[in-house]
Computed example of a mutant assay.
Amino acid sequence: MTTSHSPVPVLPFADWLELIDDRSAALRVAAEAADPRARVPGCPDWTARDLVAHLGEVQRFWAATVAAGPAARPPAEASVPQSEPAGDLLAWSAESTSLLLETLGTAGPDTECWTWWAESGNPATSGAVARHQMQEAAVHARDAQETAGTTEPLPSDLALDALDEFLHVGFGSMDGWPHAPARVALASDEGHAWTLILDSTGASAVRGGPGGGPEADAVLSGSASDLLLALFRRVPWDGPGLRLIGDPDLVRQLVVWPPLG
């Protein structure tokens, strides 16, 4: 596979904050339209109410983490204010989002803080937290929409950035690949590509297709939204929105490899 894909656009810090706000609001709109007891297809152990509570708890945790500054450990549970829902769930959720955004805005993009991915070599900063929380809100907003029967694709700019983050941080934090060494290329319809190199050390993401290097063992193509949702097991990797050239067993192994919350 040769490619002339352009560099992957990484969104600025201000856009991450705006999209956290937008996608968190979209989750609440969809959750309000759904039966609160309905099961979430992407997270079948959760109800719609559980989904709203989860995102709020996560946002409050990361607000406390960023506020604590440089640290060797995550904040103690007692230091996370109102970590469990109280009163009106949607109002509590909106307050959770506001708390996270206020904390990130005050910190700016470069404040160091604890992150679970620090050992992977990726930045452990408030900016990295903002980027990861944009992805979290976006995927769970889509979960809420699916629960309500109102799914829509993720915005392209968000999906491209979130896919880049997931490949570098999510996959980059994994232990050794448990199968034969391989390369998987992901090519977005928006014109950007990545190559994921899988071996006994784990996974390394390279922006761009294989180009003049070794050929990929599998190439999965589609919109950035569908590629991201497939890696999150929200849409089937062999569904109508995606196209595969190469080894289907390899892609199947890749999709089930990382643990997902």
Score class of each variant (00 low, 15 high):
M1W: 14
H5A: 15
P7V: 06
V8Q: 07
V10T: 07
P12S: 03
P12V: 08
F13S: 00
F13Y: 00
W16R: 07
E18V: 09
E18Q: 10
L19W: 03
R23D: 10
S24D: 14
S24K: 09
A25Q: 08
A25N: 04
R28Q: 05
E32S: 13
A33G: 06
R37C: 03
A38L: 05
V40K: 11
C43S: 13
T47P: 08
D50A: 10
L51Q: 06
V52Y: 13
A53K: 11
H54C: 10
G56L: 13
G56C: 07
Q59E: 01
F61P: 09
W62E: 05
W62T: 02
W62D: 00
A64E: 03
A64K: 10
T65S: 12
V66Y: 15
A68R: 10
A68M: 04
A71T: 04
A76H: 07
A78K: 09
S79N: 03
V80A: 12
V80N: 13
A86D: 09
D88G: 07
A91W: 14
S93M: 03
L101N: 05
L101A: 05
P109E: 11
E112S: 14
W114F: 03
T115W: 08
W117P: 12
W117E: 09
G127R: 04
G127N: 05
A128Y: 00
A130W: 12
R131D: 00
R131N: 03
R131E: 01
Q133N: 15
H140G: 09
R142A: 15
T150P: 08
E152I: 09
L154P: 07
L154T: 11
A159P: 06
L167N: 04
V169I: 14
G170S: 08
F171S: 06
D175N: 10
D175M: 12
G176P: 14
P181L: 12
A182S: 05
A182M: 08
L186W: 00
L186Q: 01
S188Y: 07
A193V: 00
A193I: 03
T195Q: 09
S200M: 00
T201W: 08
G202D: 00
G202A: 01
G208S: 15
G208M: 11
P210T: 08
G212Y: 12
G213V: 03
E215F: 07
E215C: 05
A218E: 02
V219A: 08
S223L: 07
P240C: 04
G241A: 13
L244K: 09
G246I: 02
Q253P: 00
W257C: 06
P258A: 14
